[in-house]
Computed example of a mutant assay.
Amino acid sequence: MGGMADPKSALVLHLAAGGEPLLFPLAAEESVAVQEKIPDLLKHGGVHSVQTKDGNTVSVNFAHVAAAYIDDLSRKSRFGLTG
């Protein structure tokens, strides 16, 4: 368990169909690995599983994703979302 200063990395997915972006909080080490794979995943539309911060596994079909990136949720305020 970390302190308040720990970055809160999340995988942010904007679906091609539109709507609100999906956020999946990631463990710090996972966010680095996922960030490196995003360009290939978007290019090839593959399915990739990511480990969330709470230990769950989420599988994402990148064929349905218009944009994906890793964001630091502690960097700026967001409405409607609590970490």
Rank of each mutant, 00 (worst) to 15 (best):
E20K: 08
K53N: 12
L41P: 01
D54C: 06
Q35H: 11
A27H: 00
E29T: 03
V32P: 03
D54T: 12
E30W: 04
H44W: 11
L26F: 04
P39L: 01
L22M: 13
D40T: 14
T57V: 12
L26S: 05
K37T: 15
V32E: 13
P25A: 00
Q51L: 08
V32T: 14
A33I: 08
Q35M: 08
E29M: 00
G46C: 11
D40Q: 15
G55C: 00
E20I: 00
A17Y: 05
F24V: 04
G19H: 06
T52E: 11
H48R: 10
Q35E: 15
V34W: 06
V32M: 01
L42P: 02
E30A: 07
L41W: 10
V34L: 00
S31L: 02
P25M: 10
E30S: 05
A17I: 01
E36M: 05
E29C: 01
T57C: 11
D40R: 15
G55K: 00
L42N: 07
D40N: 14
G19F: 06
P21D: 05
L22Q: 11
P21R: 02
Q51F: 09
H48Q: 14
V50D: 07
P25R: 04
G45E: 12
A27Q: 05
A27Y: 00
A28D: 13
P39C: 13
V32Q: 13
A17W: 06
L23M: 14
S31Q: 02
H48N: 13
G19N: 01
L42Q: 03
A17L: 05
K37P: 10
A17M: 02
S49R: 06
A27M: 01
H44K: 15
P25H: 00
Q35T: 04
V50G: 03
G45W: 12
A33F: 03
V47D: 13
G46F: 13
A27G: 09
F24S: 01
L23A: 12
P25S: 04
L42C: 05
V47M: 09
L42V: 06
H48S: 09
L41I: 12
S31D: 06
L41A: 11
K43R: 13
K37C: 07
H48K: 14
A16S: 09
G45L: 03
E36H: 02
V32I: 04
L23H: 09
P25N: 05
T52V: 10
A28M: 07
A27K: 05
N56I: 06
P25V: 02
V34N: 03
P25Q: 06
